[in-house]
Amino acid sequence: MSKMKEMMVKGMNMVMLDCDRATYLATKNEIESVGCVQRMQLKMHLMGCKFCRTYSKQSNLINKQMDNMKELDTDNLLLHLTGEQKNRLQQTVEKHNTL
């Protein structure tokens, strides 16, 4: 009986992911989808783990914010070059513009 229990625990550990592994797979799955067994393991883990569900939600939020960095909104730029910076850059352009 105890042998059986031991085997069951071993089996469970093979199927169930811990949070470390689950968040690793979640990160990977966001960019390159993981295999279907791993995806199922991940799904099962998320069903039972509130922390990792929160983690996933927050990851999506971060990704959404990163999406905004891919293409910037011209009307809502964070920084503006100072006059001094512009002068520096303009001088560089004129110096290297051989035409």
Binding site: L72, L77, L79
Partner: peptide, 9 residues
């Protein structure tokens, strides 16, 4: 200039 600056930042 501004756009590229923000893009790089």
């Amino acid at each position: 200039g501004d756009y590229l600056y923000n893009f790089a930042y």
